[in-house]
Design a protein around this nucleic acid. Sequence first.
DNA 1: CTGAAAGCGCTTACAG
DNA 2: CTGAAAGCGCTTACAG
Lengths: 343, 343
Amino acid sequence: MIDRKITIKDIASEAGVSPTLVSFTLNNTISFNGERKYKVSEQTAKRILDVAARHNYKPNNAARSLRSKHSRAIGVVLSDISNKFFSDIARQIEERAYFYNYTVMFGSTDEKVEKLGKVVDSFIEKGIDGLVVVPCEGSESLIKEVVERGIPLVLLDRSVDEPGVSSVVLDNEGAARMAVEKLLAGGFKRIEMISYNMALSNIAEREQGYVQTMQRVGLGDYVKVHKVDYANIEESGKELFSSLDFSQIDALFFATNSLALAGMRVLNRLGLTTPNDVGVVVFDGNEAFDLYPSTITYLKQPIEQFATLSIDMVIALVEKSCQESRKVVLDAELVEGESSTHP
Amino acid sequence: MIDRKITIKDIASEAGVSPTLVSFTLNNTISFNGERKYKVSEQTAKRILDVAARHNYKPNNAARSLRSKHSRAIGVVLSDISNKFFSDIARQIEERAYFYNYTVMFGSTDEKVEKLGKVVDSFIEKGIDGLVVVPCEGSESLIKEVVERGIPLVLLDRSVDEPGVSSVVLDNEGAARMAVEKLLAGGFKRIEMISYNMALSNIAEREQGYVQTMQRVGLGDYVKVHKVDYANIEESGKELFSSLDFSQIDALFFATNSLALAGMRVLNRLGLTTPNDVGVVVFDGNEAFDLYPSTITYLKQPIEQFATLSIDMVIALVEKSCQESRKVVLDAELVEGESSTHP
DNA sequence: CTGAAAGCGCTTACAG
DNA sequence: CTGAAAGCGCTTACAG
């Protein structure tokens, strides 16, 4: 912590007032006394403000936190900040927090609940006011505990089955439906899905959206959800793809961007292209697709809203302007490319 | 900030000792008295530790910071955390900081010095102990000011011309030399470079490495450094490429990954492929290249070392275990693909 | 409208 | 080895 010599006391003595008044002025506090509210007189205020400005006064954050019991810091626990989807969110979260003069600290779980626990603990020890968390498999009890300890919490991207927990998620079922319908409209029938072997709400909902849409249009017989091992995408994906009979598959719907990237790498190697050999719709855009010979149809998630809302909501909880939990569901947008239309 | 009821005082009274002793015990402090050093007696220590553990005691971070004058927080200012190169670094920085029980806050400048100033100011106000900064164009005076204020600082990825400033950078000249030599060995002669119109040390050094290598092998006549506008890569790049006569160019050396991505997108559109129509070497790998028909030769930067060293160095400065500034230069590694060999 | 005073939870000389 | 006491720089009832 860097010494900022000037304190409220210095300003007080230089302005010839009490520290109390300096604090009131700088924080724009109104003091109550029975019925009447008082503000610092304009004259005094001006004098104080002048002195503070002249010395470039900055309040000491630690002192303020110690006294006021809040730190204006939020802990954000993501799956992996080096993953483009999450780093995009991180960027927006940063900006939003800065806007409110809040600070954020990031942590990554790599989808491991033990890491989630460690990161959350360390954030709490560091004195955060609230948490934004992307929960991972098996984190229900941990989440519950956080909520029960009264720590303001907003879940992001995925939710868990706990009452009273706020969350900002995508309408994954709806998004999956859009994807499947686009492929159907594009002339594909035998659509199969590539997903993860993880029990995450968003993944489950995407699978559900796929299955239900297929059944609704009478293609239930073609429904097939292939599960790739998250911890080992590359190898597991390669193995899976070599077992698929692409003469029996019209199109693939990828549950995440990482899966799509890995999958298309394998398709490439197998000499298969989209949309010629197989239709494709994926979750999230990726600059990688720009180097692909044809354009890819993808579901665009509202990154900025994810970030903005989760920060707004956690701050509302922290500052008690909102007490009850809220669940917000956002819509994906389908961005059409060539990969979803049979040539 | 979340209430952690238990304080040092509570533990003291429950263990029947003074707060001083609790603090000493918990922090493993040794007290001096003239010649002799004293530790808390084992018996007492055990009693205190037991009580603390039973109540799951966590020290109050704000109080500790206020008193000790340091926060165990580092501010890290990157160019853009949603850029893969920097988010990879961010991830490693996080882990390293966590290892030392330090906290880090991230900020992005978008290469704008005004933003750099804002972020640095806000970090200082928040009470960071030190800074890791990726400086941008025109940030010399700002950097100088930070150093003069005695704020521990380590520059990352790029350096500035100020004495006494620590930095962790790449041997960019050497890396560029490797790239050019690889292309030469691959059978390309007329090698041109695609770079930015920015005055950054790393960019300048890469250009220098390219120019010098070309001259050294007697190809000075072919030297050409094309500058793309950073704020407008896409359009500026398109414009540039449409003005190039590819029948007169054997190979392109891209100064950054973003440039390479943009450039290869345009090449794609022009119907040009590597290595058939033009040789290519780029900075940094990118999963995007996996979807490209041929593999790309790239210079791999030591991301983990960037992160680890910058954090280690700034902490050393903070904790005064190291007073003088250090400049560390790391080597890139050339990862060979098909794009650097003439077919 | 303004000020004196307490206190947030620690750390750290100082004294014994 | 251990403890009493001061103090870090704020905020906030309370009193006038």
